[in-house]
Amino acid sequence: MTRPQTFFRIILPQVWRLALPGLGNLFQVLLKDTALVSVVGLDELMRQAYVASGSTKEPFTFYMAAAFIYLGLTALATIATMLMERASNPVSRGARA
């Protein structure tokens, strides 16, 4: 095999399987850190919750709603990572170890 072939056929599939749990974790951290951009005024979920709770005087309701949306997103990310981990592992696909 040529060097690029070795990389794409042998190294990358193995690296991918080993790196996936870490990458999934990192993705979740990033997902939660997006809440921070509301501090500089971007109109994302957290900012909307802030505005909505300011105009309705029901901060608990809206922050709780935001919390549950984030929770749903992280749960979804966890499930997606789990599926990808399973797909990247030949043993869990039925190959014999």
Binding site: Q28, K32, D33, T34, A35, L36, S38, V39, M46, A49, Y50, S53, K57, E58, P59, F60, T61, Y63, M64, A66, A67, Y70, L71, T74, A75
Partner: peptide
């Protein structure tokens, strides 16, 4: 653990600081 690890810290802070005053 699922709740506190699955939501941003900022939401948790706001929930306690602003949220408590709703009741």
């Amino acid at each position: 653990i699922f709740f506190f690890r699955g939501t941003p810290l900022l939401v948790q802070i706001f929930l306690i600081y602003y949220g408590a005053s709703q009741f």
